[in-house]
Design a protein around this nucleic acid. Structure first.
Lengths: 218, 218
DNA sequence: ACCTGAACACCGTTCAAGT
DNA sequence: ACCTGAACACCGTTCAAGT
């Protein structure tokens, strides 16, 4: 049989993480779900930190940055990269937590993304320090764009999700309007009512145009 | 005497968080540090989640966004906001984790920052949805800028910090240069050798110029 | 090679009780 | 109002042992 394997563990962990949050992904929970003893997991992963590395690697490997023989201009390739990150973060609700918690240097596929971003930034004309900063900036701002709260779908039924959004909106709307005038006014979009177009195209434009306008200055 | 108080707990928690990481901030650890029983903390905070809310509120209240009677153009005010966030994240190594973990809607001073950002975005000419996205984007990209690994100083002696940076650099440099050419080449700045000027001025410019160039389009 | 059993040192939290 | 004691249900992890 060989029921247990590293990928089986990772896949179940992502299921739990996406539906119940990364905090619910625990060695013991994983073990009972897989019909096995908690200690069985320690043969496949040295410890929990390495499990999270496995999760991150699995997630990022899914949207593999295209190969080296890509002759398109850096703007297009960088847009692809950012859009890929945003899509990843949208598809997997727990990707944000995973990428925040993991030691990124330990994740091979993450290093590949990093390297790609560095190369593109260099090609755009930035120096080494600036390129380093830009490559971190790309991931972090992709998180900002993808972080719109549309993730309830995996975790709840549509009715439950609507109820949660409603409650959050009411919370914001019942704040003192003299102290937080804009929050009260914009409670609805703030809490999840943003259109796909706004955060997919406007959001990516926001990131890219900053990079482009600084690239033009050198 | 009244040794124990909410602010005393928060201050000790921030000391631990900044020097040993937020994971080290535990109810029980906090209690022994403060010479008290773990359960004593539950009188001051309903649970650990509320403690983290307290941490976030304390952190953000420290750099209070200026009052309403500020007639300067939105660019300047937004630059101040971003610089303040970056400074906060630099001063407190654990601020990043705190802001990532906390339920931001529950933090009063965070709502004030959010409201300010929303107002400035509206003034820049963005619509409601775009303004919501921008206000999230500002915090997240500030994290990207501030996240350069200069934080070891609080946790280690200068010699230890140098040793850690050296080891990380060696790790990057010993990667296969054919797969990660740029990472290997830029290992040194990537791991902490970025100059203050690059991430303080270039980084803030990066964020602002994206917003400005999109604002100009409408 | 792959998994189990028992045990250890840690968590957050509740609930009744003290002053 | 403010804190303690004892207990509960969870963690991750080690170590020796099984097949």
């Amino acid at each position: 049989m060989g029921k247990l394997s590293a990928t089986a563990i990772v896949e179940r962990a992502l299921e739990i993480g996406d539906t119940e949050g990364l905090d619910a992904v625990t060695i013991r929970r994983l073990a009972t779900d897989l019909g096995v003893t908690p200690m069985a997991l320690y043969w496949h992963f040295k410890n929990k930190e390495q499990l999270v590395v496995g999760l991150a690697d699995h997630l990022i490997a899914g949207f593999a940055p295209e190969s080296d023989d890509d002759d398109r201009p850096w703007r297009e390739r960088m847009r692809d990269l950012i859009e890929g990150l945003v899509r990843l973060l949208r598809t997997h609700p727990c990707a944000k937590s995973v990428l925040e918690q993991v030691d990124q240097v330990a994740v091979p596929s993450f290093l590949a993304v990093w390297d790609l971003a560095l190369g593109l930034a260099r090609r755009a004309g930035f120096d080494t320090e600036q390129s380093c900063l830009i490559s971190k900036y790309i991931l972090q701002s992709a998180i900002a764009i993808a972080d719109a709260p549309v993730h309830y779908s995996a975790r709840y039924t549509p009715e439950e999700a609507a109820e949660i959004v409603r409650r959050k909106r009411v919370t914001l709307q019942s704040l003192p309007a003299d102290r937080y005038p804009y929050l009260v006014e914009m409670a609805a979009p703030m809490v999840g009512g943003i259109s796909r177009e706004t955060y997919d195209t406007f959001g990516v434009d926001l990131i890219l145009s900053g990079i482009e306008s600084l690239a033009a200055r050198r």
